[in-house]
Amino acid sequence: MNWFSSQYWQQRDMEHMIGKWLRAGVFLSATVALLGGILYLQQVHEIPDYKTFHGAAAQFRHLPGILHGVAAFDGASIIQLAVVLLIATPILRIAFSVLAFAIEKDKRYVIISLIVLCIILFGMFSGLGG
């Protein structure tokens, strides 16, 4: 098969879109983590105590707290933003698949993607994780 033929890429449009989505998410997360990391290593000098479990500080556990820290150029908060972007990438990938299969007019897989999306959202909001 000729990898450079237009027919090959048409067949792989859906795959191509989903692949691009993952690459974009991963690249964005890594860039944000790197920027946050540079600040973090300048702002923090000693290894935090991880031996006993206190849990991460409350401001690092939810998006409003994280964004508040990002606005103040806090390195650790920017790293947590990268974590949020990383977590969002595969979840939004499912939502994105619905669109990608719809463009391919593949009804069965539009439905399959929607079912997975519903189960994931149910798991997240019921606190069961999924």
């Binding site: 946050g36 290894i47 935090p48 690092f60 650790a76 977590i87």
Partner: peptide, 11 residues
């Protein structure tokens, strides 16, 4: 993340 298992310094 909500339970505080994810530490920025380790992430």
């Amino acid at each position: 993340l909500q339970r505080g298992y994810i530490q920025p310094g380790l992430a």
